[in-house]
């Protein structure tokens, strides 16, 4: 089930997962005699496609009212898909409400990163708290594996659902600094709840 961020209204397409009936699939490779005759199986397949064709042609003539739509196409720049929290987009740093980053520059993400995309220079504030003086994420090397998010003890780096603007024509512009990566807590709330579930980070 996909949801669209259309002109203010959310549009549901396709069959909701709960309504899908499980189908029994025969997995042996030997064809029965009936299937070896081809013609009837071909007619069966054509019946399925023709059914879709006829229903959709009817939909062209009489567009279905309401939110349900039978066409799966997303008019991409006009419509955008609201991505599920499991989607791993650009890794971003989470910002506290006071504007500072959650990151304590422990360097675990730097170690865990398989592509060596992260480089951190840590420093200490006056109150003794550590913070990253610079946090450089080289997106030319990032493979969107999400290890940084998994190892982070402070939920400071999460995989956001951002997928636009990831490609650049210049490599130097793909090295993101700390300021470019900071996102507010609300914008990645869904993902934080999700990683708490899947990584069992509920004990603190």
């Amino acid at each position: 089930m996909t949801q669209f961020d259309g002109k203010g209204s959310q549009v549901t397409v396709g069959v909701p997962a709960g309504r899908l009936k499980p189908k029994r699939v025969r997995r042996n490779l030997d064809l029965t005699l009936w299937e070896k005759l081809y013609v009837f199986e071909i007619i069966r397949g054509m019946y399925v496609t023709t059914k879709h064709f006829a229903l959709n042609m009817l939909g062209f003539v009489l567009p279905p009212r309401g939110k349900k739509r039978s066409v799966f196409t997303v008019y991409y720049p006009d419509e955008k898909v609201v991505l599920p929290p499991a989607y791993r987009g650009r890794p971003v740093l989470v910002m506290r409400p006071d504007g500072t980053e959650r990151c304590v520059a422990c360097g675990l993400c730097e170690t865990a990163c398989p592509g060596h995309a992260i480089s951190i220079v840590g420093a200490e504030r006056e109150n003794g708290e550590r913070y990253p003086l610079s946090y450089v994420l080289d997106m030319t090397r990032c493979v969107y594996c999400g290890f940084c998010e998994e190892v982070c003890p402070k939920e400071a780096i999460v995989m956001s659902s951002e997928y636009q603007g990831l490609a650049e024509t210049d490599r130097s512009r793909m090295r993101y600094s700390k300021e470019q990566l900071l996102r507010s807590e609300e914008s990645v709330k869904g993902r934080i709840e999700y990683i708490r579930r899947i990584y069992s980070k509920c004990n603190y």
Binding site: T50, V71, F72, T73
Partner: peptide, 10 residues
């Protein structure tokens, strides 16, 4: 167009 209509596309 026909392939699109058959495959629930536009």
């Amino acid at each position: 167009k026909q392939s699109a209509v058959m495959q629930d596309r536009i």
